[in-house]
């Protein structure tokens, strides 16, 4: 009986939990960024700002939905949904504890990477449908950038796959019970750095957030969205980055392995994902952004060859260790 009901309940539970975490991760980022800037973040709403995300959500729901007259209505209206759905979908394959997940596919990593690159369609729909030159410029930049950085993202995510020998996410996590992949002699650290850089770039986070550069393109592809549609886009962005943080924690930091009893596993997973997220946030609030042609040059001329070489080196090392009987 349970086997029939669980696949129905699990997605709903996971979806709600994920949305809750995503909403509160915005608060975490705001407080963390504020402390780095010698100020305190949200403070008045609730005790030290704990109710701030709820206040934001309520405000966005109550806002007027302004649709430009000349916007391409079907494209404009569907874009936030097309953007949000893949970002939520990636949580389907993540196992939060051994055996606790919605759908622990055999090709978990492949599914994750493939689905997470589909948000670019929603992004471009938003830019085109807004009938706004700023949005169009930003959407063109976004397509360039996300496509360029998906390749290093894939390659750096494949390094733990090669080390563990399986595409299944829970297998990769189990293979780290001895040594987390980040502590692998040289390959682990370099792969982690490459993963972080390509994640930050593939999700349009600073210093690669050229497509929503507030100072040039005034919110880029989001410029014509208000109210709940804007909330959906924000939700999608933060869900994507949270998903990538979870993936990074799983691929490199050993997911649920940590001291203490078994049921603490998901808590450790959450903590590690938050650490990856804070690292990404720390990078975001420390650097100015670079131009789009420089971003593309960095990807094609530096990051892609580097991750390719690193993948080859990992494969060589794994085969050599297998042959040497280690």
């Amino acid at each position: 009986m349970l086997e029939l009901v669980t696949p129905l309940i699990a997605p709903i539970v996971v979806l709600h939990v994920v949305i809750g975490i995503v909403t509160y991760v915005t608060l975490l980022e705001r407080k963390f960024a504020a402390r780095m800037q010698s100020r305190i973040g949200p403070y008045r709403v609730g005790y030290h700002g704990v109710l701030q995300p709820i206040a934001d959500a309520v405000k966005l729901m109550m806002k007027e939905d302004v649709v430009p007259t000349a916007a391409d209505k079907p494209v404009y209206n569907l874009a936030p949904i097309v953007f949000l759905v893949p970002c939520m979908f990636i949580f389907a394959t993540l196992p939060f504890a051994p055996g606790l997940g919605v759908a622990d596919l055999n090709i978990g990593v492949l599914f994750f990477l493939a689905v997470s690159s589909m948000e670019i369609v929603g992004l471009f729909m938003a830019g085109w449908g807004s009938n706004n030159k700023y949005a169009l410029l930003s959407a063109m930049r976004a397509v360039n950038q996300v496509i360029s950085y998906d390749l290093p993202f894939v390659f750096s995510a494949l390094i733990p796959v090669v080390l563990a020998g399986s595409l299944k996410l829970s297998d990769i996590a189990a293979a780290q019970s001895g040594l987390w992949f980040i502590f692998y002699p040289v390959i682990g650290q370099l792969a982690f750095i490459a993963f972080i850089v390509s994640t930050v770039a593939a999700e349009n986070r600073a210093p690669f957030d050229i497509l929503e550069a507030e100072s040039e393109l005034v919110a880029g592809f989001r410029v014509e969205y208000s109210g709940m549609k804007f909330a959906l886009i924000q939700l999608g962005e933060y869900a994507h980055i949270l998903g990538a943080s979870f993936l990074g924690a799983l691929l490199f930091l050993g997911a649920w392995s940590g001291p203490g009893p078994e049921w603490l596993g998901p808590i450790w997973f959450l903590i590690k994902a938050m650490l990856v997220f804070l690292l990404v946030t720390w990078v975001r609030w420390s650097f100015v952004r670079i131009r789009v042609d420089q971003i593309l040059a960095l990807s094609w001329k530096a990051l892609l060859p580097a991750t390719l070489l690193l993948l080859l080196a990992t494969a060589v090392v794994v085969v050599w260790r297998a042959n040497a009987g280690l």
């Binding site: 600073a206 100015v288 952004r289």
Partner: peptide, 12 residues
């Protein structure tokens, strides 16, 4: 801030 964005390193 112009180069880095109001939500980003420039604001810092």
């Amino acid at each position: 801030m112009d180069m880095g964005g109001a939500l980003g390193g420039g604001a810092t």
